[in-house]
Every structure is written in structure tokens, then in C-alpha cells.
Computed example of a mutant assay.
Amino acid sequence: MDIPKIHEGEYRFCLIMWEHEPVTAAELVKLCQEQLGWKRTTTYTVIKRLGEKGVLQNDNGTITSLVSKDAVQAYEIGELVEKTFEGSLPAFVAAFTKHQNISEEELDEVQRMIDRIRRGGK
């Protein structure tokens, strides 16, 4: 499945949708006003736009996602690595770790991920 480009405001909306789905459009209006400061019309515009992009489905006012959070995040990271680091994952990791404090627990988790990938898992 092709992942459509989701812009920053749309992504913040999607985070709310993914957390509460299935959710009514009316509830999304309330949540977006509380969490994003959006007006009702803004929320409905984003629902319509993301529906047209194939990101969500509006079934008689009940909103559900058609694209998962994991899929969107994987796509965005892939785009970032390709665009900014010429597709080089090691260059991305080097740039990221150069300016971040990484805890021992985080390093252990990354090592477990690497070990799992080497064993053929995902």
C-alpha cells in the first residue's frame, strides 16, 4: 500500500485519531479543540482531506484509520533517510547519536533490535 504524505498538522490529528479510534467526528472535534486549539471547521476539513487521501474512513460520522501509525512512521523515516542521508542508515544513526544522550537502557534495546534482525526477525 502506498502511504500518502501526511503533513504536520494532519499527523497531530492522526495521533489523536489513532489513540481513540473508532471515534465519532463530534468527539474528534472536541478532542482537537482541547489538544490542538482547532475550530470545528478545521477538524472537519482535515477529516475530509485525509479521507480523500485514503488515510481514514468516515462511515456515517464514525472515523477509523485506513493507514496505521507504524506504517506512517516507517514511511516518514524512510523518506528522511533517503532525502537527507542519501539512503544511508549508518549515516542517519551517526548523525542522530552525535547530538543525543542515549541511556544504557536505550542502547540495550537497540542492541536487542539488531540481534533480532540478525536472527531473521523483524
Score class of each variant (00 low, 15 high):
50 L>T: 07
50 L>N: 02
50 L>A: 03
50 L>F: 05
50 L>C: 04
50 L>P: 01
51 G>E: 07
51 G>K: 05
51 G>H: 03
51 G>R: 04
51 G>S: 06
51 G>M: 02
52 E>T: 13
52 E>K: 12
52 E>L: 11
52 E>F: 05
52 E>R: 13
52 E>S: 10
53 K>Q: 09
53 K>D: 09
53 K>G: 03
53 K>R: 10
53 K>E: 05
53 K>V: 09
54 G>V: 09
54 G>H: 08
54 G>M: 06
54 G>N: 07
54 G>W: 04
54 G>E: 09
55 V>G: 01
55 V>W: 00
55 V>N: 00
55 V>F: 01
56 L>W: 02
56 L>N: 02
56 L>F: 06
56 L>M: 09
56 L>A: 07
56 L>G: 02
57 Q>T: 08
57 Q>K: 11
57 Q>P: 06
57 Q>R: 10
58 N>A: 13
58 N>F: 00
58 N>K: 07
58 N>D: 15
58 N>S: 14
58 N>I: 00
59 D>W: 03
59 D>C: 05
59 D>G: 02
59 D>L: 07
60 N>Y: 02
60 N>M: 05
60 N>F: 02
60 N>Q: 08
60 N>G: 10
60 N>S: 14
60 N>P: 04
61 G>A: 06
61 G>Q: 04
61 G>C: 07
61 G>K: 02
61 G>S: 07
62 T>C: 14
62 T>S: 12
62 T>H: 07
62 T>M: 13
62 T>V: 15
62 T>D: 12
62 T>R: 14
62 T>K: 11
62 T>Y: 01
62 T>P: 08
63 I>D: 00
63 I>Y: 00
63 I>N: 00
64 T>A: 14
64 T>H: 12
64 T>G: 13
64 T>L: 11
65 S>R: 03
65 S>K: 02
65 S>A: 14
65 S>W: 00
65 S>T: 15
65 S>D: 10
65 S>E: 13
65 S>V: 10
66 L>M: 13
66 L>N: 08
66 L>V: 10
67 V>D: 00
67 V>G: 03
67 V>A: 07
67 V>C: 05
68 S>D: 08
68 S>I: 09
68 S>T: 15
68 S>L: 06
68 S>V: 10
69 K>A: 15
69 K>F: 10
69 K>S: 14
69 K>Y: 14
70 D>A: 05
70 D>M: 02
70 D>P: 01
71 A>C: 08
71 A>D: 15
71 A>H: 11
72 V>A: 15
72 V>I: 15
72 V>G: 09
72 V>R: 08
73 Q>H: 08
73 Q>S: 08
73 Q>E: 13
73 Q>R: 13
73 Q>I: 13
73 Q>F: 07
73 Q>L: 14
73 Q>D: 13
74 A>Y: 04
74 A>C: 10
74 A>K: 14
74 A>W: 01
75 Y>N: 12
75 Y>R: 09
75 Y>A: 12
75 Y>Q: 11
75 Y>C: 09
75 Y>F: 11
75 Y>V: 12
75 Y>D: 13
76 E>V: 14
76 E>Y: 12
76 E>D: 15
76 E>K: 12
76 E>A: 11
77 I>R: 13
77 I>S: 14
77 I>Q: 11
77 I>P: 07
77 I>F: 09
77 I>G: 13
77 I>V: 14
77 I>D: 09
77 I>E: 09
77 I>L: 15
78 G>P: 03
78 G>A: 11
78 G>F: 03
78 G>L: 03
78 G>R: 06
79 E>Y: 01
79 E>I: 08
79 E>M: 14
